[in-house]
Design a protein around this nucleic acid. Structure first.
Length: 741
DNA sequence: CCATTACGTATTTTT
DNA sequence: TACGTAATGG
């Protein structure tokens, strides 16, 4: 035995060497859960289990990649053979092999939520169902909720007209997916179950194949995942699950925290291990975390402790406004940097909703604080990328009508009328849209000019279907991008948005290239699958030295030396929608717990008295969660006492920070002395806008600053725009962006 | 057919 | 506020 287990504590070691039978590892935050999982896999391999027989399921692709690398480091390259990935990616892989048994072809498309919603919209439009009465967005989430519980249209019995309409949509949705040879995210989980139930021999093949199954983040699995696991493991029962009920935060997505509560009942003779020593945080941070989580009724008893130092008290800071919050955190970050021990990348800003990132982005940009942002509009959801993807999808799977329609729509000269014609032909003949296009010359319904465009289009697709297997993926994709001429078209627009789109397309090309370089067996289908299943957190570049901005959800599994949890206001964190539902309020609390336990050394929690929400200034009250924390672990910093006029934001040593778009705003409080805060700082506003600097204006595009006049918020600049000539701009209104060179 | 504009509405979290 | 859809006119 070459594996060194001495790096593990006794309980971790016991969990690692217990390889037979069902095993449940309850792992508190920061207790070395990933390490245990990694060592357990390594230990299996070391004990003679073939990596080929190991299946490990993680929550994100990133976690999978990292874990695989660690196992390889511990045991050698043979570990390449093991299957490790998210439920979605592993099951997609299985489904590709077995697709024909379920009436799909192996090149099936994967639909993301956007695709699903647009499909639902089309169904509703076709049926004349009003979008006001039935929100397609809502329909999609209800369908998804049913599917994760494996409740299919045939299981439903509608009791009123509302339910009847819903069922009609659901039924059509399912059959259209199949017609398009497409699966949505939920199908990736429930189709394997269908497969295993219909084909016991197939199930047995995979039971034999995966003799050892390990699951990470079990507290966030849903019913379908549980059923699939149960099926797969019910021959050898070598299933190890790792999780922490206190960190279950995906109820809204169908995750069932009961899965972890019920595990011992559902699987017989479960060995239970509890990892209770935290290696991550200071005693103070852990005390705060403990205060929070013990308010929850439903939880597995555990006693998280740490041998780490006591550390600083947790700082609670009251802010005047959301801008103030961003600004003062920027300042605190600069102070942390001055203390020298800290890098930007050791710092994270966490918030409840993505919309909160904006004020931080603006402030950080204006103050030269580098940042990484997770979430928001996903790269592969961007219009230009989806446009290109639609071409690729049609080529991979010509049955994919949704993709085909999108691609077709991009062609100049093809509009609603033409598309409707093609659709009606397809419907009449009961063939796919692509089939109609293939011999469009035989249909007299279409006018000649348009017909030529269509022939050109279908020839184009046909050509690339043949080229698909001849060219390397990245060459293939570049060829398509060049030929559809999307880049020159964008160049013509000559706006900053168009430039950004071109950049995105270039980035997309490099992504394909990287896929080609890093995969043993690169195919177009493989690339498309990877794209569909990738998430933002997977893309987080942790090598770049930058502050990380993300939601508390995205932060799960990560750790940072310094953490700011922002917007701890009632109605925001916890969200007001959770107030009346006990389970949801408990989930918000767990989310807060997750956020708190990301911090290693220092934790700041902030709340603001007012905040812009939905474009409206709202007065906010501090979160109920804050009153649940015992006061002796908190260091309260109330803004009114700490900051005096004029020194509010700037101090002599660190004048690097400045404000850019603050409005003139006087805030008064009615304590014993009245303090007026004046945001109108004269000197440092827009200090990055100087003569000679190249800037972007949203309407005028790029230009060069010629001169600057005025002070503070009245500052104006004369700018020579490439396309609009000289303009005098009031900086406070123009959201100028400084270009890098 | 397509571009522009105006209006209306949505915003929690994401594999 | 900010985006997406609907209506309108070219």
């Amino acid at each position: 035995m070459s594996l060194d287990l001495s790096v593990l504590n006794p309980e971790q070691r016991k969990a690692v060497v217990n390889i037979e039978g069902p095993c449940m590892i309850v792992a508190g935050a920061g207790s070395g859960k990933t390490r245990v999982l990694t060592y357990k896999i390594a230990y299996l391999i070391d004990s003679g289990v073939s990596p080929y027989e190991i299946l490990a399921l993680t929550f994100t692709n990133k976690a999978a990649g990292e874990m695989k690398q660690r196992v390889i480091n511990l045991t050698g390259d043979a570990a390449q053979k093991m299957w490790i990935g998210t439920f979605h990616s592993i099951f997609a892989r299985i489904l590709r092999f077995e697709a024909d048994k379920l009436g799909y072809s192996r090149s099936f498309s994967i639909y993301d939520d956007d695709d699903s919603i647009s499909l639902i919209k089309k169904i509703m439009l076709g049926k004349g169902i009003s979008v006001e009465k039935f929100n397609p967005y809502g329909i999609q989430s209800v369908i998804s909720a049913y599917k994760t519980q494996i409740i299919l249209p045939e299981h439903l019995e509608p009791e009123n007209s509302f339910e009847k309409t819903f069922l009609e949509i659901y039924t059509d949705y399912q059959s259209l997916l199949k017609q398009n040879n497409a699966m949505d995210f939920d199908d990736l989980l429930i189709k394997p179950i269908e497969l295993f139930e219909r084909y016991p021999d197939v199930l047995e093949k995979y039971q034999e194949r995966f003799k050892f199954i390990l699951v990470d983040e079990y507290q966030d699995t849903n019913h379908a995942q549980y059923i699939a696991l149960k099926l797969l493991s019910s021959k050898y029962f070598n299933i190890s699950i790792v999780g922490d009920d206190a960190q279950s935060i995906y109820r809204w997505r169908g995750a069932k925290i009961d899965n972890i509560f019920d595990f011992q009942r559902e699987f017989k003779n479960v060995k239970l291990f509890k990892l209770e020593q935290n290696y991550r945080s200071t005693k103070m941070i852990l005390a705060v975390a403990d205060d929070i989580i013990k308010k929850n009724k439903k939880r597995i008893e555990k006693n998280l402790w740490t041998a780490n130092k006591e550390g600083e008290k947790v700082h609670i800071i009251e802010m005047i406004s959301d801008r103030d919050e961003a600004f003062r955190i920027a300042k605190l970050i600069k102070e942390e940097m001055h203390s020298k021990k800290i890098n930007f990348k050791d710092i994270a800003i966490l918030y409840r909703t993505n919309a909160q990132s904006r004020s931080f982005e603006e402030t950080f940009r204006n103050n030269s604080i580098p940042y990484n942002i997770v979430g928001g509009i996903k790269f592969y959801q961007r219009k230009e990328i989806k446009d290109i993807l639609s071409y690729l999808k049609v080529i991979a799977n010509s049955n994919d009508n949704e993709a085909l329609l999108r691609a077709l729509n991009l062609r100049e000269g093809i509009g609603k009328a033409t598309i409707e014609k093609i659709q009606s032909i397809a419907k009449e003949k009961n063939i796919s849209l692509y089939k109609v296009l293939e011999d469009i010359q035989n249909y007299i319904e279409v006018k000649n000019g348009i017909k030529n465009t269509l022939i050109h289009f279908s020839d184009f697709i046909k050509k690339y279907i043949t080229l698909k297997d001849e060219l390397k993926v990245h060459e293939f994709v570049s060829g398509i991008i060049d030929e559809i001429g999307i880049i020159p078209k964008l160049k013509l627009e000559n706006t900053s948005e168009a430039d950004e789109r071109i950049n995105n397309i270039q980035e997309f090309k490099s992504a394909v290239r990287e896929y080609y370089d890093t995969n043993e067996n690169p195919t177009l289908e493989g690339f498309l699958e990877q794209v569909s299943l990738i998430t933002d957190i997977d893309e987080l570049d942790d090598k770049k030295n930058a502050v990380t901005l993300m939601t508390a959800h995205s932060a799960k599994g990560l750790e940072f030396s310094v953490v700011f949890i922002t917007g701890l206001e009632d109605g925001l964190f916890p969200l007001s929608s959770s107030f009346d539902i006990a389970e949801e309020l408990e989930e918000e609390r767990r989310l807060f717990y997750v956020a708190v336990t990301r911090a290693k050394e220092k934790l700041y929690i902030t709340y603001s008295n007012q905040r812009y929400r939905y474009g409206e200034l709202k007065f906010q009250l501090k979160s109920r969660f804050l009153s649940e924390i015992s006061q002796d672990v908190l260091d309260k910093c109330i803004v009114y006492e700490k900051f005096s006029k004029n020194k509010l934001f700037l101090d002599q040593e660190a004048p690097a920070v400045n404000i850019s778009i603050f409005k003139n705003k006087n805030i008064t409080n009615n304590r014993d002395q009245t303090i007026v805060y004046d945001y109108n700082l004269s000197d440092d506003c827009f200090s990055d806008i100087r003569a000679g600097v190249k800037v972007f204006h949203n309407t005028f595009g790029s230009g060069v600053v010629q001169s600057v006049s005025g002070n503070g918020l009245e500052k104006r600049a004369v700018i020579l725009f490439n396309d609009f000539g000289l303009k005098k701009i009031v900086l406070k209104y123009a959201k100028l962006r400084v270009m890098d060179n």
